[in-house]
Design a binder for these strands. Structure first.
Lengths: 207, 207
DNA sequence: AACATAGCTGAACGATCGCTTGGAAACAAG
DNA sequence: CTTGTTTCCAAGCGATCGTTCAGCTATGTT
């Protein structure tokens, strides 16, 4: 009963997400947002409660769409070396893709908001924990398959991978030469190869 | 002639730098700034012209004080492996130091402002270029001293180091477990050791 | 057709933003 | 001391911030 909404929540959250992603939190005004979302202030506040509420929704949307696209492969229970390499390759080339200047919404949020906004610190902590978890899981799987040298420091490598990723996001956002991002990825791959047992332990490439 | 200033430019620029460093650009108001600087709005605008002018001055101050403290050793013409290791060690432990949640002013600036503010993109580009230059220089010196394996990819390593550094800054600002920052530094050291020729090529430790 | 309900609209709220200004205050030069 | 110059101070400028709301519109129900 009552008048039906003229928008769908996912669609307008997507638009808000893209604006926050590009400009950050403080540089994006509610007027910018309502304009981009094609919605009136009333609807924004009826649907999300506040600018911060909308931001949280945008972050959740980012996690459930963009991040899944980036790390979906790594999330698999049986992810292993191939999935790690895919992620490293993907971000190594990400400087070439248009829109790379947006970097990563959660990385941007952490430097802009983490110290002052509780919810941002939480979502960033969740993000880093997530990255380390999926990397650790894949490395552990590789170890269980006897594909890693015995002394491979799995936890340290996972934290290292996550840290390099953050650095790449910063480089992308700062629009530095894409070779820098590529170089970082290459060196991580080299380091990864050093804990891999046999150079031929990798199964045939997938398409 | 005329009334003398009741402030000194360096001192108030330092205070402004610290505030920008903590909170970022947009979250710091001119009222916050004048209060922290102990100065009236008039003096701020007489001295710096605008909020952006003050920010630029704060960035310059950051470069000439904080950054020199961090990378002064690496800047030396004859810097080599020892200086690289010192920097990696320093940032590896930086999670332990108080105030580490501030991260790096220029790294924070790049994610918050680089896409929208020309001057920020410039200062970030300058920063990354500087980092890569000093790392490259030190690596090249080590190569000239025959301390590196012949195939050491110097340019790529330098870009890699700079990228990891950025990632560490993000991690520090997000206040994640300091072990993450430590791990990243450790793995970079491991990678560095792999391009070093003899394990005993390092001269006795300095104090 | 009439009612109840929920969403849309445009205008505007108080607060804060970056920034300006007119007059008092503090120095150097004469 | 007077004059000229520069800075300090308090108040407040117009603009924009995040947010709200009374009145209208469109729907489901009866």
């Amino acid at each position: 009963m009552g008048r039906p909404k003229m928008y769908d929540r996912e669609g307008i959250t997507d638009r808000a997400m893209n604006l926050f992603w590009e400009r950050g939190y403080h540089a994006t005004s509610t007027r910018d947002l309502t304009e981009a979302m094609g919605v009136n202030p009333y609807s924004l506040y009826a649907e999300f409660g506040s600018k911060q509420g909308l931001y949280s929704a945008a972050v959740e949307r980012y996690e459930s769409t963009v991040m899944v696209g980036h790390f979906g492969g790594l999330e698999a229970e049986d992810a292993s070396l191939e999935e790690i390499r895919d992620v490293l390759d993907f971000f190594g080339e990400s400087g070439d893709r248009k829109g790379s200047y947006r970097g990563c919404l959660l990385c941007n949020a952490s430097t802009e908001l983490a110290p002052t906004l509780e919810t941002s610190r939480e979502s960033t902590a969740r993000y880093v924990e997530y990255l380390i978890t999926v990397f650790t899981n894949a490395l552990r799987n590789a170890a269980n398959q006897d594909r890693l040298v015995e002394a491979a420091p799995i936890d340290e490598l996972a934290a290292f991978f996550a840290t390099v990723l953050m650095g790449q996001f910063v480089m992308m956002r700062a629009q530095v030469d894409r070779a820098v991002v590529r170089s970082a990825a290459n060196q991580v791959v080299v380091r990864l190869n050093e804990v891999v047992l046999s150079p031929d332990s990798r199964p045939p490439q997938r398409a």
